[in-house]
Design a protein around this nucleic acid. Sequence first.
DNA 1: TCATATT
Length: 432
Amino acid sequence: MAEGKKERKSNSEESVKLFVGQVPKHMTEAQLLAMFQEFALVDEVNIIKDKATRASRGCCFVICPSRQEADKAVNACHNKKTLPGASSPLQVKYADGELERLEHKLFVGMLPKNVSEAEVSALFTKYGTIKDLQILRGSQQTSKGCAFLKYETKEQALAALEAINGKYKMEGSSVPLVVKWADTEKERQARKALKAQSQASNAPNNDSQHPSLFGALPMGYVPQYNGYGYQAPGTYGPMQYPLSPMQNQPGFHNMIPTVNQGNALRGITPDLAPRSYAMPPASYVGSAYPAVPGLQHPMAYAGGIMSHRPLSGSPGSVQHAVVSSNSSTSSGTSKSTGGQIEGPPGANLFIYHIPQEFGDQELANAFQAFGRVLSTKVFVDKATGVSKCFGFVSYDSPEDAQSAISMMNGCQLGGKKLKVQLKRDNKQNKPY
DNA sequence: TCATATT
């Protein structure tokens, strides 16, 4: 089966995918291709677009024919060039999972705690050249009973995987080794987030669970996803070792319960969804006024909060009043929260010391009294989904932003005093 | 502590 040269492009074995951030949304794939080709061989550029609007999301993939070419592109461009219209330099790196794939990296589990690198190496070297091997260890150098291992080629790694996984018991061990492809960084993060989430929802008073977490969760991912992947299906053959030993693995315990938890969260709190907490559509910023149906003048509402609950009073009450204002019906006008809509200059606020439990929605609720809120964004840790306690609020007029500053800056919300100021402006004025 | 985005 000779492979024609024309098919090299689709040779996923050798080619390398790079992720590129800080790409101005107006740039075309052809323009980007031309630019990257100045530095390296590039087969293809794919702009990453919003699924719904098809608008650029400000980043793209670049496919290079080899790792060498990919590295050339990274070295020449990463943090080195700022495209016209971008506020910071290009971010060029291997796309998620590329490194793991290219390194033919395996995870080895169920190692006896007392085996050494040398013993593992002796076993695995039968299947190929080991480029890297590392047993995971805890604080006192105690083995965690697993290791990462890199082979020179995919074929070698696959041979080892198929020969050893579930079949080979190390001396003195009653259970066979587990060998699987190492998780990607993304998978690790997904697991972290799930774990953090499950802990959060096990906590008492979980009625006030972050709404933002629901939307952020990779729930669609859950059913197939299985902790350490010990039950990995199909690709490498069915599991041929007994399941029971896995129950001793920390990862195992997090696996099934977590999945159930996802269902439980939806199941046991049927009132959650109607209150728009669970999986809201991307448009709820403009929808919270109705909490006080007759209220038209924003200041009246703000004044109400401030005067009935002076700053010296209980902070919790303030927060509660604001949050609960949204748990009602929604009304028409919708601007997306997610899609970083910026207002005109002077109408965008940077907010710090946002209460931990606030998501985009709560932030919008707290700030919509002062004008039409175009968008809000609370930043969350990518891995854990935990709020970083800062974010943005955009209005459509600078006057609204000013009144928000005067009313909300220093306002005690949750435990701390909000810091409300104009957002820094990177791009002074846009060129056409 | 200032919009970082993985089809």
